[in-house]
């Protein structure tokens, strides 16, 4: 197995809604499966904070190697949602 250091984390820091005090979110939809090819900027999934829905774009091109948090999983701001292995 190649090292985990090459993988790029998908998290929610950049897209977390500004006008909320809430630090907990819920994954509501994944649009791609593990093993899918992604281009940087593709919408990977959608999470919800309070009643706001936010799309999470792929931070880099590559392969969606691992989905860490599934649909309906609750998480804290900053948690890793998935890992992408860059090209």
């Amino acid at each position: 197995m190649s090292s985990d250091d090459d993988r790029v984390a998908v998290d929610t820091d950049d897209v977390w809604p500004e006008d909320t005090d809430e630090d907990e979110g819920v994954v509501v939809n994944w649009f791609l499966r593990e093993g899918s090819r992604v281009d940087a900027g593709d919408d990977l999934c959608e999470f919800q904070v309070e009643k706001v829905s936010v799309d999470v774009p792929a931070p880099t091109s590559g392969t969606l190697e691992e989905i860490v948090l599934d649909e309906d999983d609750e998480f804290e701001r900053g948690n890793v949602l998935a890992w992408i292995r860059p090209d």
Binding site: G25, V26, Q48, V49, E50
Partner: peptide
């Protein structure tokens, strides 16, 4: 308050 019972964190 009552309404938000059971609607957090997922609404």
């Amino acid at each position: 308050e009552e309404y938000l019972e059971g609607k957090q964190p997922a609404f």
